[in-house]
C-alpha cells in the first residue's frame, strides 16, 4: 500500500515536472505565461519556507513578504555594485536574508501567539518603508534595475528558476522529514515534552527562522532576476497575508499543501484581474469556505479520496464474503 502510494507520488511529480519543462513551448514562449509559472514557483518556495515556521513549528509569522523584499533587494544591490557570478549573488541574498531572520529571531523566540504575530507584522511593514527611505542604498521610490545574467536567455533563466525551485523544495523536504522536522513539530505540539526530550526549543525556533528566511530570501532573489526590477511596492504587507492564506488553503500540516495554495492563488488573479478589486474578494471567499468546510486544507482532499477508495474496497470484500 505504502509502495503504491510512493509510486503514485513519483508518477505525479514526474508528470508535473515534465509539464513545467514543456510549458514554455506549449505557451509559445509567451512572457506573460512564463511569468505566471515563475510566480507560482517563487510563491511555492516562500509558502513552504513560511510553513516550516507556521505549520511545522507552530510559530506564527505575518511578515514574510519582508524577507522576500530583502532577498530581492540584496540581489539588486549586489548585482549593481559587485561583479559576482549570479549564483553567488543569489546565495549571498539568501545568507543576508537569513542573517536578518536571525536578528529578528532573537526577540521572536521569546514571544508566542499574537505577540509574535505583532512583531513579525511590524517587520513586514517596516521593510518596504526602509526600502523607500534608504535612497542611497535602494534608490528609493524609483527602485532598482536588475541586469539579467548575460549567459542566460529568458528560456534558460526560466529553467534555472525551475531547477532552483525543485532543489530548494527538495532541501526543505529533507529537513522537514528528518530529526530536525520532528524537533520543529514537537515544539508545536508540546514545548514541555520537547524540552524533557532534550530539545533546546530556543535553538530550534531560531533555526526555523533562519532556514525559513534563507529560502524566502533566495525566492526573492529569483524574483529580482526574472522581473529585472525591484521596487519598494513589490512586496507590501498584503503579500504576507496572501502567503498565510496560501498555507491555510493548501493545508498547513502538510509539505505539499502550501504548494497547492501557491499555485491556486497565483492563478486566481489571471482570471479576476480584469474585474477591478475582485481578486481579494475571491481569495477571501475561498479562505472562508476552506476554513469552514476543510480546515485542514485542500491537500486533505487527497486523503479523502484515499479513504473513499479504501471503504469501497472494504465494501467489495465484505460483499464477496457475503455471497
Amino acid at each position: 500500500m505504502q509502495l503504491k502510494s510512493q509510486k503514485l507520488k513519483y508518477i505525479f511529480n514526474s508528470v508535473v515536472l515534465l509539464f513545467i519543462i514543456v510549458y514554455p513551448f506549449l505557451m509559445n514562449m509567451s512572457g506573460y505565461w512564463m511569468t505566471l509559472l515563475v510566480m507560482m514557483t517563487i510563491y511555492g518556495i516562500t509558502a513552504v519556507a513560511l510553513n516550516i515556521m507556521i505549520g511545522y513549528g507552530g510559530q506564527i509569522s505575518i511578515g514574510h513578504a519582508g524577507f522576500l523584499m530583502i532577498g530581492s533587494y540584496s540581489v539588486a544591490i549586489i548585482a549593481d555594485r559587485f561583479e559576482l557570478p549570479f549564483v553567488i549573488t543569489l546565495l549571498l541574498a539568501g545568507i543576508i536574508t537569513a542573517f536578518v531572520g536571525l536578528i529578528i529571531s532573537f526577540s521572536a523566540v521569546r514571544l508566542k501567539g499574537h505577540f509574535l504575530a505583532v512583531v513579525t507584522l511590524g517587520f513586514g511593514i517596516s521593510v518596504p518603508v526602509i526600502a523607500l527611505n534608504w535612497t542611497s542604498l535602494t534608490n528609493g521610490y524609483s527602485g532598482m534595475l536588475v541586469t539579467r545574467p548575460a549567459i542566460l536567455s529568458e528560456l534558460s533563466l526560466y529553467y534555472f528558476i525551475v531547477g532552483c525551485t525543485v532543489l530548494f523544495l527538495w532541501f526543505m523536504y529533507n529537513i522537514l522529514h528528518s530529526s530536525f522536522g520532528r524537533a520543529f513539530i514537537s515544539i508545536r505540539e508540546s514545548e514541555i515534552a520537547a524540552q524533557s526530550s532534550g530539545i533546546n526549543t530556543t535553538f530550534y525556533k531560531t533555526l526555523m527562522f533562519v532556514i525559513s528566511s534563507f529560502f524566502t530570501g533566495m525566492a526573492g532573489g529569483l524574483y529580482a532576476y526574472w522581473i529585472g526590477f525591484v521596487g519598494p511596492t513589490d512586496f507590501p504587507v498584503t503579500i504576507s497575508f496572501l502567503l498565510l492564506a496560501m498555507i491555510v488553503v493548501g493545508g498547513m500540516h502538510s509539505f505539499y499543501g502550501p504548494i497547492f495554495g501557491a499555485v491556486l492563488f497565483s492563478i486566481i488573479p489571471h482570471f479576476t484581474d480584469e474585474f477591478m478589486g475582485i481578486t481579494n474578494i475571491v481569495i477571501g471567499l475561498i479562505l472562508v469556505i476552506i476554513i469552514l468546510f476543510r480546515p485542514e486544507g485542500l491537500v486533505t482532499i487527497v486523503d479523502w479520496f484515499k479513504m473513499n477508495k479504501t471503504m469501497e474496497k472494504a465494501d467489495t470484500i465484505s460483499k464477496e464474503r457475503g455471497s
Partner: peptide
C-alpha cells in the same frame, strides 16, 4: 500525558532519541 498528539507513535518515540542523534 504530554505527548506530541498529532504525530505517530513511531515519531513520538523517535523524538525521544533526539539527544543521541547526530545531526
Amino acid at each position: 500525558t504530554e505527548l506530541f498528539a498529532n504525530m505517530t507513535v513511531m515519531d513520538n518515540l523517535l523524538v525521544g532519541l533526539h539527544p543521541l542523534t547526530k545531526k
